[in-house]
Design a protein around this nucleic acid. Sequence first.
DNA 1: AACTTCCTACGACATCGGTAGTAGAAGGGC
DNA 2: GCCCTTCTACTACCGATGTCGTAGGAAGTT
Lengths: 133, 133
Amino acid sequence: MAKKPIELGEAELAVMRALWDHGAQTVREVMNRLHERGKNVAYTTVLTFLTRLEQKGVVASDKRDQAYVYKARISRQSVTISRIRSLVDQLYDGAAAPMLAQLIENERFTPDEISQLRKLIDDLDPKHPSKGE
Amino acid sequence: MAKKPIELGEAELAVMRALWDHGAQTVREVMNRLHERGKNVAYTTVLTFLTRLEQKGVVASDKRDQAYVYKARISRQSVTISRIRSLVDQLYDGAAAPMLAQLIENERFTPDEISQLRKLIDDLDPKHPSKGE
DNA sequence: AACTTCCTACGACATCGGTAGTAGAAGGGC
DNA sequence: GCCCTTCTACTACCGATGTCGTAGGAAGTT
């Protein structure tokens, strides 16, 4: 069977972000990160999230001193990939290229991003090795 | 105020797809599309979705003969963009490039798709005009 | 020991999304 | 007129998510 796609809500994702951005933390620390970002959630709310996330298997906890320290067990990348994947499947029948084309045409990119993008594309194409330089 | 991002669930999106792929349809037709795709939902379920989608303002209905005909009021593109944007905002603080890198590295593209993508990029970049033509 | 502070466990509650049953209107057939 | 089919309107229900409050333990302060 395929690995069940782990569903993460928006607020749960914000918690994951705190862990990705600042490493393993206690409930209180995560709460502070969220507050810094303008999410004024209650301590117990954060605790609930972390608990649920642990049940989902995406974070792990470790008792240290008085409090548990939580750390992410999945990467930001894996979440990105799975989100994109499901979007592509749902809206473009799995064909990523048309979707990417949409993005390229509609997003505003800085010149810098554009060259990065080109490099990425070039790396896919053996005929255009963007090596050297 | 900013336009509130319209939230569409997975099943709602499947309904939108039916409308995008096959144009304006009645409840029954949409249901048939979904069945064709393996989603065996009840007629009333589809009706509920369409009703809710209309309340959300993303579809419009039009009484024709006996039944209402529903049509999409937002494009597949706009949904794509808004989804990706929220993903980018949530996971990469709005920086699209790193996310695109993820996307590009993990999807498979045909040579043909690759050149099309390159062309799109070249069109964005004044320094690399995708030559005359 | 009493007080204060912080931590976790549990329970609660609202909203939303997915799913569907029932009821009642509307039209076609005989 | 009566029946069958089809449509829409309502209502309901469950699980997931977002958000907390309360209770009770552990630990540091005096």
